[in-house]
Simulated assay, not measured.
Amino acid sequence: MKGSSHAIIGVTVGAIAGYQVQPDPYTAVVSSLVGGVSALVPDLDTNGVASNRITISKELGRWLMHLAGIGILMAITYQYFTIGYTPSILLYGGIGLLFFIISRFITQRRMLTLTGIMVMWLGFVMQQSIGILLAGSYIVIASFLSHRSYTHSLLGLVFYGFILNQLQQEWEIYGLLVAGIAGYASHLIADMKVLPMNRRGVKWFSPIWNKEW
Rank of each mutant, 00 (worst) to 15 (best):
N198Q: 08
K203Q: 12
L97F: 15
V49L: 15
S5L: 10
G71A: 12
R199I: 04
T115N: 13
Y85M: 13
H66K: 07
A28W: 02
N47M: 11
P25E: 09
I16F: 13
T107C: 11
I139G: 10
G3E: 06
G131E: 03
I181Y: 00
V178K: 04
Q128K: 09
M120L: 11
E170Y: 02
I54S: 13
L134I: 09
S31N: 06
G156M: 06
L145N: 07
I89C: 06
L145A: 13
I8R: 02
M65N: 05
F124D: 15
Q79V: 11
P42A: 12
K193G: 05
T77P: 02
T151K: 03
Y92R: 02
L145P: 01
S206Q: 01
T115D: 04
H152K: 00
M120Q: 12
V119P: 02
V140A: 09
I139K: 09
Q127W: 06
K2Q: 13
S186W: 00
N210G: 13
I106P: 00
R199F: 05
Q20C: 13
V194Q: 10
G93T: 08
I189E: 02
S51Y: 12
I16W: 10
K58T: 14
A28I: 06
T107N: 07
F144Y: 15
I72L: 12
G69M: 01
L167H: 02
G96H: 14
L188I: 03
K193H: 10
V41G: 05
M111T: 07
V49A: 13
H152S: 00
S5N: 10
D24R: 06
P207E: 04
Y78W: 14
T77G: 12
T86I: 05
G131Y: 02
V21K: 04
G35R: 07
Y174F: 10
W204Y: 12
N52R: 15
Y174R: 09
S153F: 14
F81Y: 15
V119C: 06
S137Q: 10
V37T: 07
T115V: 09
K193R: 14
S129G: 07
A135N: 01
K193D: 06
T115I: 04
S206T: 08
S51H: 11
Y184Q: 02
S103Y: 11
A182C: 03
E170M: 09
G183S: 04
S51P: 04
S186T: 06
G71E: 10
T115F: 13
S149M: 10
H66E: 11
G201L: 04
S103P: 05
G183H: 05
L177M: 11
I95S: 10
N165M: 15
G3P: 04
M197Q: 13
T107H: 04
T46V: 07
I9D: 00
Q79W: 13
I189D: 01
A68Q: 05
I181M: 11
L33I: 14
M65P: 05
S4Y: 14
T12F: 15
A135H: 03
I102L: 14
I54K: 14
Q166S: 14
S5Q: 12
I54G: 07
G93R: 08
I56G: 12
I130H: 02
V21E: 13
L157A: 14
T115L: 08
A68Y: 02
K193L: 03
S5C: 01
F105G: 01
D45T: 04
I163F: 11
